[in-house]
Design a protein around this nucleic acid. Structure first.
Lengths: 217, 217
DNA sequence: CGACAGGTGCTTGTATACAAGTACTGTCCG
DNA sequence: CGGACAGTACTTGTATACAAGCACCTGTCG
């Protein structure tokens, strides 16, 4: 729910409320929040509250750098003979990406699977897991970008370009295409930030505080 | 204690024992184990027990790939003017690495600080945090390697070589030196594994079981 | 009218009790 | 002699009670 922005950045999370709505006690909720906090998706302030972390442009940049470094290195490490099973999987994936009427969340799943498959071609599928765990802020920024212009077609075309270069054995072209593709996120972010500044962190030293609010029951 | 091998790979961890020896209740112990489990340093088997994970050569290779990709990419991203404060810090660090009678743990701390400082030169100090969290298996393998031959001098020389290339602006040489340095780990691992196979994972499908043992009180 | 102390209601942090499951051991029974 | 079976001692998983602290509200006193 944090990743899909159903819980928006900045939202307050109460362990008690979550426990009640999920029908469990605070313990498993709390243990889950600890894991989310380690990924940087949730911030816990003792005696104050837990919050969905705002999208931090610095953390987005960090994740972008990490991801680009790893994916480009994987391209350099491609073996001469590519696994045909994975190639077929990637082709099927690409075809589904270009279907009409594709939902955004479905596209994200395909996107994720595509990049992971690419890593598996060079035998580094497990390294993708680490990257995936570190790029929570990046993913949320990407979602914000797609919610704005809602045109996954451009990205699908870029995916095909990368795949064709990889399948054709042109590592240099693949690297260029991958770099262009991954950096497309940045051009989106500033636009989103002008649109919805409340979703982004400005000063990391600001901490949230509790407010008593009165609502109609 | 897991990273420094004071708790050896394969050791059984009891939440109750840890809680008693640390003077706290199971709750904070358990929450800590969850974090260690996410880093892959501890494995928890429900209703069976928790164990320090054995060094998994596959995970060592994954961490090595990730680390190499990130550190080499950082070298490519060095700005023309390097921060003099960080340069001084690195120089001091190098000098201390070559002191006589340096303890192994002290060397590891200097090693870690050196690589992190190198990343900060290109403004990617935060990305190092993610790499550091993912390379627990790698670090344990490196410690095993150093406990065997106990000659950090070679690595200290390699560090100086990398630094001189960076300070001299020769990115290509820096890349080569860094790659050689990072891959030195692999040559060590097989030797260690022949020596102490019980520290390494062989088949990931094997799970530990409980045994009732009788000990003298 | 203003300052201040205490009460209230929330938050997360910790301790503890109990539940569910595993593995071994001794005993009973055929 | 061998197998079924209850009992024991441990494991982790979950629920719950209490502790410590923050922010606000409110009554009281000057």
């Amino acid at each position: 729910m944090v990743l899909t922005l159903q819980l928006p950045p900045g939202a307050a999370l109460s362990e008690n409320e979550l426990a009640a709505s999920l029908g469990v006690s605070r313990t498993p909720v709390r243990e889950s929040l600890i894991l989310l906090a380690q990924e940087g998706l949730v911030q816990v302030f003792p005696q104050i509250g837990s919050f969905v972390s705002r999208v931090d442009p610095a953390q987005v940049a960090d994740a972008q750098f990490l991801r680009e470094a790893v994916e480009l290195a994987a391209l350099d490490d491609l073996p001469p003979d590519l696994d045909p099973a994975v190639l077929k999987e990637l082709r099927d994936n690409l075809e589904r990406q270009q279907r009409e009427g594709l939902g955004l969340e479905e596209f994200f799943d395909l996107d994720e699977a595509f990049h992971q498959g690419l890593m598996r071609l060079s035998g580094h599928g497990n390294a993708w897991t680490t990257v995936a765990a570190a790029k929570g802020h990046l993913d949320r920024a990407r979602r914000l970008g797609l919610y704005e212009n809602a045109s996954p077609a451009v990205f699908a075309d870029q995916h095909r370009e990368i795949f064709d270069a990889v399948a054709g054995g042109d590592v240099s072209l693949a690297r260029t295409a991958m770099r262009t593709h991954l950096r497309a996120v940045f051009s989106d972010i500033e636009r989103i930030r002008a649109h919805s500044p409340e979703l982004f962190a400005t000063d990391s030293s600001t901490v949230p505080v509790r407010r008593n609010v009165v609502v109609w029951e």
